[in-house]
Amino acid sequence: MKLSSKAALAALTALLTVAATVAHADDAVTVKLDMADGNLTPARIEVPAGKRIRIEVRNTGKGAAEFESVELRKEKVLAPGADSVVVIAPQTPGEYKFFDDFHQSARGVIVVK
């Protein structure tokens, strides 16, 4: 069976798209964050530079919680018992603060090395 040049190009494009999607998923670093009535566990998250950051956030507290980072322009509100994911683009080395907007004393930092 001989493919036309259009069909071959379409097949190659589809194959490269799948390969790029798999490679893109592999470059993410996943960390877990527990938020519970003003407590963040862990409060310090260390990740490598140049990798997407995938934070699996879970609210195990009795009240609402909100993951927020002004520097990273991210926020996510979670009802009690809820969990969600915050995805952050690759960052340069440095420290990026985050907090629970409903419990202002709950503060953490993402350290990119």
Score class of each variant (00 low, 15 high):
108 G>N: 05
48 P>R: 11
77 V>T: 10
52 R>A: 14
54 R>G: 03
15 L>R: 06
56 E>R: 13
50 G>R: 03
2 K>Y: 12
94 G>C: 06
13 T>R: 06
32 K>Q: 15
5 S>P: 04
106 A>P: 09
109 V>G: 00
49 A>T: 06
10 A>C: 05
36 A>R: 14
3 L>F: 14
6 K>A: 13
9 L>Q: 13
27 D>P: 05
113 K>I: 08
49 A>M: 11
31 V>N: 06
53 I>S: 10
90 P>V: 04
14 A>R: 00
83 D>F: 12
46 E>G: 12
12 L>W: 05
58 R>E: 07
37 D>L: 11
77 V>D: 09
91 Q>E: 03
37 D>H: 04
26 D>K: 11
80 P>I: 00
40 L>S: 08
78 L>Q: 03
55 I>A: 10
14 A>W: 02
93 P>N: 00
85 V>N: 08
49 A>W: 04
84 S>V: 06
106 A>V: 02
30 T>L: 15
69 S>M: 05
4 S>M: 06
2 K>Q: 13
5 S>C: 05
15 L>G: 07
64 A>T: 06
83 D>P: 01
110 I>G: 05
89 A>N: 15
21 T>R: 08
51 K>F: 07
94 G>K: 07
60 T>V: 01
56 E>K: 08
34 D>K: 09
104 Q>P: 14
12 L>G: 05
69 S>P: 08
78 L>C: 04
12 L>T: 14
5 S>R: 08
70 V>Y: 10
89 A>L: 14
21 T>L: 15
58 R>G: 01
62 K>A: 12
78 L>W: 08
5 S>V: 04
2 K>L: 12
75 E>H: 15
91 Q>C: 02
71 E>T: 09
95 E>W: 00
89 A>C: 09
47 V>G: 00
63 G>P: 07
46 E>W: 09
104 Q>S: 05
22 V>Y: 14
24 H>G: 13
18 V>A: 12
45 I>F: 11
48 P>A: 07
85 V>R: 09
89 A>E: 15
112 V>G: 00
23 A>C: 01
22 V>N: 04
78 L>I: 06
97 K>A: 15
105 S>N: 13
90 P>F: 06
35 M>H: 06
19 A>I: 11
56 E>A: 15
